[in-house]
Simulated scan of single mutants.
Amino acid sequence: MFLGDSVTDVQAGRAAGVAVVGVAEEEGRRHELLAAGAAGAVDGVDALVSPR
């Protein structure tokens, strides 16, 4: 899995053959990442990792 916050990150991850999750606080930006091919999008990395 690859995390990225830009359309070019999504493109790079997909070109490498890995799933990409977009990370963006703004809803519009998350939609851009999904439109670019991200498998999913979250507000921040903390949505993926439990705090200790």
Rank of each mutant, 00 (worst) to 15 (best):
E26V: 10
V10H: 11
A47D: 14
T8V: 14
G44T: 08
V7F: 13
T8H: 15
L33A: 06
R30S: 03
D46E: 12
V10G: 09
V42D: 02
V49P: 06
G37M: 07
A24V: 06
F2D: 04
P51F: 02
V23C: 09
A39V: 06
R29C: 03
L48D: 02
R14C: 03
D46F: 01
E32K: 05
S50H: 11
Q11G: 13
R30W: 04
D9N: 14
G22E: 02
G13F: 02
Q11P: 08
R29P: 03
G28H: 07
A38F: 05
G4E: 09
V18S: 13
R14K: 15
V23Y: 05
Q11T: 14
L34G: 00
A41T: 04
L3S: 04
A41C: 01
L34I: 01
M1W: 07
S6T: 15
A16Y: 09
R30C: 02
P51W: 01
G28M: 00
V21S: 00
L48F: 00
A12S: 14
A16H: 11
V7S: 10
V20A: 09
G28T: 08
A38G: 04
A12D: 13
P51Q: 09
G22L: 03
V18I: 13
G13Y: 03
A38R: 03
Q11A: 13
M1G: 08
V18F: 11
D5N: 14
D46N: 06
G37D: 09
T8N: 14
R52F: 07
E26R: 14
L34T: 00
A36G: 06
G40H: 09
A41W: 05
D5M: 09
V21T: 15
D43T: 12
A38I: 05
A12G: 15
E26W: 06
V42R: 02
E26S: 10
L3I: 05
A35V: 01
A39E: 10
E32I: 00
S50C: 08
V10S: 09
R14S: 08
V20P: 14
D9H: 11
A16V: 10
G4I: 07
H31C: 01
A47E: 13
V23L: 07
V10N: 11
V10T: 11
A47S: 12
V18A: 14
L33D: 07
L3F: 11
A35R: 07
L3C: 02
G28V: 04
G22F: 00
A19I: 02
V7P: 12
V7A: 11
R29E: 13
G44A: 15
F2W: 11
E25F: 12
D5C: 10
D5E: 12
H31A: 14
P51G: 15
A24L: 07
V21C: 04
V49A: 08
L33N: 06
R14H: 05
G4P: 10
A38D: 04
G37P: 11
A24S: 10
V18K: 09
G40Q: 04
G17D: 10
L3N: 04
V23T: 08
E26H: 14
E32G: 00
D43N: 15
V45I: 15
E32R: 06
G22H: 04
A36L: 06
E27L: 05
M1F: 10
D46T: 09
V49K: 05
G44N: 13
L33G: 08
G37H: 08
R30K: 10
V7C: 10
D43S: 13
M1S: 10
G37Y: 08
V7E: 15
